[in-house]
Write a protein that binds this DNA or RNA. Sequence first.
DNA 1: TCGAACCCTGCCCCAGGGGCAAGGTCAAGC
DNA 2: GCTTGACCTTGCCCCTGGGGCAGGGTTCGA
Lengths: 253, 253
Amino acid sequence: MRFMSDELADGRHLLTIGQLADYAGVTIKAVRVYHDRGLLPEPPRDSSGYRRYGAKHAIQLVKIRTLVEAGVPLARIKELLGAGPERFAAALDEIDRNLQKRAEEIRRTRQRIAQLHSGDRLFVSAEVTGYLERLRQIGVSERTVLLERDLWILLQSVAPEQAAAWIADKLAAIADPEFRALYLDYDAAFDWSPDDPRLPALAERTRRWYAGQDGSGAAGPPPDPTITRLAGVAAGASSPAWARIAELAKEVP
Amino acid sequence: MRFMSDELADGRHLLTIGQLADYAGVTIKAVRVYHDRGLLPEPPRDSSGYRRYGAKHAIQLVKIRTLVEAGVPLARIKELLGAGPERFAAALDEIDRNLQKRAEEIRRTRQRIAQLHSGDRLFVSAEVTGYLERLRQIGVSERTVLLERDLWILLQSVAPEQAAAWIADKLAAIADPEFRALYLDYDAAFDWSPDDPRLPALAERTRRWYAGQDGSGAAGPPPDPTITRLAGVAAGASSPAWARIAELAKEVP
DNA sequence: TCGAACCCTGCCCCAGGGGCAAGGTCAAGC
DNA sequence: GCTTGACCTTGCCCCTGGGGCAGGGTTCGA
């Protein structure tokens, strides 16, 4: 009897759904979805069936919204809101790490978009452009991508047919996760000292990967010594560590 | 397999859909979706109906993927790929601006996630946060601070502009030692019985304090009756003693 | 007393795929 | 030759996080 007016009067349930939504910067529809998904408890209704919200709902909604904007799926948010504070804190840490990762991805994507803009297309063939683009995509540093590009420019001017055959091999290789991992490790090794103890293992992995390819792909074109020397010299000159890897790989035939 | 390299280099068609997808770091399903949406031309089929792709498809797919990762909708990508280079360049500029905006949003979201750990800051304005902080500083009980907080949340959702004007008054008032003393007495009176003999004196002091303010500061915003009632009712419902004070203050106009 | 601005439920729609079914095909090893 | 497993084909329904609209009822201010 007095029940309803008490609830209204004690300040717990005064907001309509529209006011609540405006406060949290959310649409009415979203609020109803959060009810459906069990994220936000259904508030009491007034005499005409309208939902009436209080400050606790507003707080909860802002929380939900913050997590949603951080990219947390609704199902996970529900789970988190029900969990204890230490679990919640741990989850927040992980969410923040994810956000950081996403920021990093955006940074890389922006670089790639920029390259898409003023393509390297002027200097190398479309195939090579695609290959370079792919390297950026998998996270290879811009420095190494530019080294690759310069190398291909040289190759294409010295021996266009060889270059065409090689780029085909590269396109096939880059589809192999093992090769991608190897490439990224090379990228990382650029700055290492030639004495770095990690280099022999990298050389061994390289040797094994090429062995695994034997007879299938790269064996085809007869290796023109001028060309291979060119490639080797170009790479070795840029990074002492890479030069050392080449040495190591040769030592164990 | 040498054969394969030459064909690829020639732009002939020999990649299967799985190889193409692996190359671009995409699922087979996604490739088929891009066909359906008209982003990627359907390649020829081999004798058993399998799709066979060439280098051009691989390049196009990497391009598509780059744009998708930048958050461009598929429909827009289709449009862009068909457009001229100047239109394409303009679109890339806009896409990059979007990415920048998204990075900025992520930065802000990270801050809010950090605050989610502890702090009322997310739920009320910075001014209100400061006010609540000041209340705690002068020794107001946490219970009353939380009541205030809830009230401000409601106020900010119902009438943000009024709330902004009011909080300015409150910040001014809290600088007055007389008001601070009054507030602390209210805080202490929370638990008193409505019959407590000390209440009339408190009511009288309240009346006098408000009389002293008249015309000086608070005159600015015309007091919206709905809002003042809201505030009064909300407070009264929490503490019978406070409700009694409000009655007493009214009796002597 | 009327129109504007709210609110209610229920239903279908979107992107960008994922997953599964129910087949056809191909290469390797025995 | 036969099997096995990895690949390919089409077609269909499913998911998230809501948006939009229909077809009502309610409330408030002029």
